[in-house]
Design a protein around this nucleic acid. Structure first.
Length: 265
DNA sequence: AAGATCAGCAACCGCCTGACC
DNA sequence: TGGTCAGGCGGTTGCTGATCT
């Protein structure tokens, strides 16, 4: 393990660092014309002095036509927080549920923004905490705690979607908005139909119990009547299921509710 | 005005995993 | 069955522009 990829070895003259517009153009036009068959052969075929991994990364994170780039919407932000709570640092899985966003983008966003934001929230809620508001980035600045505190900004319900018994709108609800042109918001909205069962994931106790495992793909959860980890796993493993049939919701106590259109089995 | 600090982002590095021989 | 290879992933680093002092 840890062996150097042949395509990245010193023997071949490979460029590193930022990509030039010409390189981008070469790679993009090559992939547009021939598609992606074998990343390791693409540099040669496209006339690039890069390793295949570098080409793949550039394509996946920057050149892919379906990337939307730009700032994260409030819905995306909420979704990332919720998915991170459920999936941990599985950025690729989180990215799979956020159309138009790359795992790298989400990862950077999380590291740069959300983690700090959540930490500040936590610090302010536990007044008197000695933790600095902005512990400085990198160089071992991370504390090893990779999960956010059990805080989640509630989303407002889409128009016409009935609230379940017991739903409590949180104070942050008015701060959220739905952008109609935002895919993730649209996805949430499309699930607006159908009321019914509510799956509550990550209440404070549950979040605590899940927090120590950054790669955990299951979570303690409760439903009106209980839910099993397998269900949640299935849900987070299936983007269309999540987007098509679920509406993500947050509760005042920091828990997250997933509304769905099917009866739980 | 200049240096220090912060924030965002692109890209590299090391490791894991599955396919293939 | 074990070794090799390529793809993929998460963590980390480095660069750059903006903001602060």
């Amino acid at each position: 393990m840890g062996r150097v990829h042949p395509c990245c070895s010193e023997e071949k003259k490979v460029r590193k660092g930022l990509w030039s517009p010409e390189e981008d153009e070469r790679l993009a036009s090559h992939i547009a014309r021939f598609g992606v068959s074998c990343w390791s052969s693409i540099p040669e075929l496209a006339g690039l002095q890069r390793c295949g991994k570098s080409c793949r990364l550039r394509w996946m994170n920057y050149l892919r036509p379906d990337l939307k780039r730009g700032r994260f919407s409030q819905q995306e932000e909420d979704l990332i927080i919720a998915l991170h709570k459920a999936l941990g640092n599985s950025w690729s899985q989180i990215a799979a549920r956020l159309p138009g966003r790359s795992d790298n983008e989400i990862k950077n966003f999380w590291n740069a923004r959300l983690r700090k934001k959540l930490r500040q929230k936590e610090a302010s809620s536990t007044a008197g905490s000695k933790e600095p508001a902005a512990s400085h980035r990198r160089r071992g600045g991370e504390d090893g705690v990779t999960h956010p505190p059990a805080v989640f900004n509630p989303l407002p319900a889409p128009e016409g979607r009935p609230r379940p018994a017991g739903y409590v709108a949180g104070p942050a609800a008015t701060g959220s908005s739905y952008d109609n042109d935002d895919p993730s918001a649209a996805a949430c909205s499309t699930a607006a139909a159908i009321g019914g069962a509510v799956l509550v994931v990550g209440n404070a106790a549950a979040a605590e119990s899940v927090a120590p495992s950054p790669t955990s793909t299951t979570s303690a959860c409760t439903e009106a009547g209980g839910c099993d980890d397998g269900f949640l796993k299935a849900m987070v493993d299936d983007a269309s299921f999540l987007f098509g049939d679920f509406y993500l919701d947050g509760n005042q106590d920091g828990s997250i509710s997933f509304w769905e259109g099917h009866a739980f089995s």
